[in-house]
Design a protein around this nucleic acid. Structure first.
Lengths: 128, 128
DNA sequence: TTTGATGCAAATGTTTTGCATGCAA
DNA sequence: TTGCATGCAAAACATTTGCATCAAA
């Protein structure tokens, strides 16, 4: 399926994403990869992140807080955005695809899926 | 509650949003208001859209398709994004706040709400 | 008058792109 | 060799902001 040529930069990006539990922005990825490949360019980071996301190897997530974030866990899952500290966390829950049916009930078009994220206070911020 | 001075530009923006069923971007709003006020600036449009959204008079919606969109209907409701033609439609359905409970079940933090939009083919595109 | 609102332009922040060169196959 | 990937810099967008001026209260 993969028609890409190997590149050590892309490999490093994939590795970095698979080992972090944060949901870094492109710029954060860039900063980290520069530790290993000081000459990598931000353009290359963006090109590879988009490529990997298109191929379903990573997830591109958008919580309307400025820049996009990326997740090395490509399995569909839900995210939580802390409105106090801005961190993005995975949230473990059963899939809620039944809401597609609810949405489709009063709609003439074809509902194929949904994008959902939750917000509130993360464990750390709600403890303060 | 409103501490704003009156401005004909802001009034025109509110009027325009209340009469359209589309979900225009800031730029589309700008283009339309220019028909009445040719000298209005894009900065003013952005300032007023943000002001109105903060005050809860309009809704700012983000479907991760480039630019933000605005909705004159301030009542919380759900949106549908057509992946073929890119249009954003209102979708009539009962609120699904029970998903906050589902999300909160396996989460230590405090889930206060969710943002959801649906995607697929709109009535027109699915008819083709 | 006072002070928020405007128009204009410059600045910002994020992401994309053109192009010559490099490197995997 | 062939052609995708890279680094670099410039460009493209969307949005915000500084500032002098304007106008509502």
């Amino acid at each position: 399926m993969t028609i890409n040529k190997y590149s050590r930069q892309r490999e490093a990006i994939k590795d970095y994403l698979s080992q972090t539990k944060e949901h870094p922005t492109a710029d954060t990825v860039y900063m980290n990869i520069r530790g290993t490949y000081p000459n990598i360019s931000l353009g290359t980071v963006y090109r590879n992140l988009n490529l990997l996301a298109e191929q379903g190897e990573i997830l591109k997530i958008n919580c309307q807080d400025g820049s996009d974030r990326f997740d090395g866990n490509a399995k569909p899952h839900y995210h939580f955005l802390c409105k106090d500290c801005g961190s993005v966390l995975d949230i473990e829950m059963e899939p809620i695809d039944h809401i597609n049916v609810i949405a489709g009930a009063g709609f003439t078009g074809k509902v194929e899926g949904h994008v959902t994220f939750f917000y509130g206070q993360c464990p750390q911020c709600s403890a303060k």
